[in-house]
Design a protein around this nucleic acid. Sequence first.
DNA 1: TATAATTGTTAGGCATAGCTAACAATTATA
DNA 2: TATAATTGTTAGCTATGCCTAACAATTATA
Lengths: 160, 160
Amino acid sequence: MITGQTASMEDYLEAIAKLAEEDPEVRVTVISKRLGVKKPSVTAALHKLSEEGLVEHPRYGCVQLTQEGRRIATDVIRRHEVLFRFLSEILGLTSDIAQEDACKVEHSLSPNSLERLSKFVEFVLTSPRGEPSCLKGFNHYLEHGERGKQLPAYHSKDES
Amino acid sequence: MITGQTASMEDYLEAIAKLAEEDPEVRVTVISKRLGVKKPSVTAALHKLSEEGLVEHPRYGCVQLTQEGRRIATDVIRRHEVLFRFLSEILGLTSDIAQEDACKVEHSLSPNSLERLSKFVEFVLTSPRGEPSCLKGFNHYLEHGERGKQLPAYHSKDES
DNA sequence: TATAATTGTTAGGCATAGCTAACAATTATA
DNA sequence: TATAATTGTTAGCTATGCCTAACAATTATA
């Protein structure tokens, strides 16, 4: 997809990286459970990733990411995190939905859009004081169906 | 995907609907050109969609959406539009990139997230006066790399 | 340590969705 | 109207990626 891997292979790399954080002994079975696929599917995927030099996987042994595999996994995880924060903290979706959707969208957003979204999330959430102003307005809008009347109106100092 | 169709079939339905807007005589060749696939791929897809009652396609004839096909196409187009507006008007990405990414993401965003995103776009872009305040701040942030100092700070009337 | 349980692999099948090459139908034109 | 150009279809191949059934290796336990 964006990393040169298919969405499916990105999922495997991401899963392996996340599982390794909890227990470095990453086995076929846990990958299978995490991704909701059967073990033979995992074996097949690992073969492919192994051929491409993205994982090491001795027969009947534990799975490890190579440097390149880790690089890609890290990239996918970053995408996931940016999307998750946007969906949960800005749009205010539940953690479950945000996770699910981040998992799907993380494979298709271009680097350009991802970077912009990242900056946007950072901007909206790092408010100088307390809850970000823009979000407060949006939450009011969500709850009451209409825009809360705002005092003076927001002006930045250097406005034209 | 979300509509019960694969991403690929959603693409065909969307393309057919959009092409029909310009010329109701939708032929295999124009679909093929629009989607960047070869004609036999289009024929195969139309067979499938036809079996599912989503298009009508007499041999060597023009393609038409059925009611159900149109319903799905309309849904996909709506997703596309919401995403496109978010990417272009809020994140400020170029039209090209926004189109491309909307095309990819439109298949994977859950209805829940889509509705929230839609409300968010509406909220941010329908500012009571001129350029939406939140966006102004973000654009400054993008250009200068730091937040513009804001006067009084935004307060909604009904704040706790 | 022999047996049972677990874990991993292989083989073979299926659906999706693209492709090329060859052919058939349709439409345009000489 | 016969021929050429275009358009559409079929057949057959490929790759991805999932599945089940059967088997093999490993690990745990009686």
